[in-house]
Amino acid sequence: MTPEQYQYLLHELAHVAGLPYPLALMNHGRLKIGEVNAVLVYEPQYDPDLMQARLMLGCVPQELKASVMEALLEANYFEGYGGECVFSLSPQSGEIVLTMRMSLLPSLSAHELWQALSDIARHGSQMWETIMAECETLHAGMPAGFHDALAQHA
């Protein structure tokens, strides 16, 4: 796919997704899919037929950090083949980032791309909701006054 074709795809994607600020996507690759912030990265000098989609899932609660990191690394082992779906940690924000490689086939339409991004964002959100729910469950199991004591020592 040529850079011009990619720009046209983004233009169409902004239209299909009904983005209120299409220039954020056109110029910086940024868009919001539901509640998930995403960045589309295209570097034609590296590979003109490759796009990387990065989804920012959120910051891991400190008390679940070890469990979440272990689960993400294991998922990378089983599902990260070829770097198609890889979890990582943003050094800047501390957010968990889900990076996906997407082939830019000439036949790829904006509708198909939006559908795929929406599905992926939904799966990512469901995963994150489960993690946060587990965090709440963990807190609910703490003895009375634990959180106050924790806050005093923070």
Binding site: S67, A71, A75, E79, C85, H123, T130
Partner: peptide, 14 residues
């Protein structure tokens, strides 16, 4: 539970 959720999501995304 976290491992299960992450594994399921990764599988679905693939």
């Amino acid at each position: 539970a976290i491992k299960s959720a992450v594994s399921r999501a990764a599988d679905d995304i693939r």
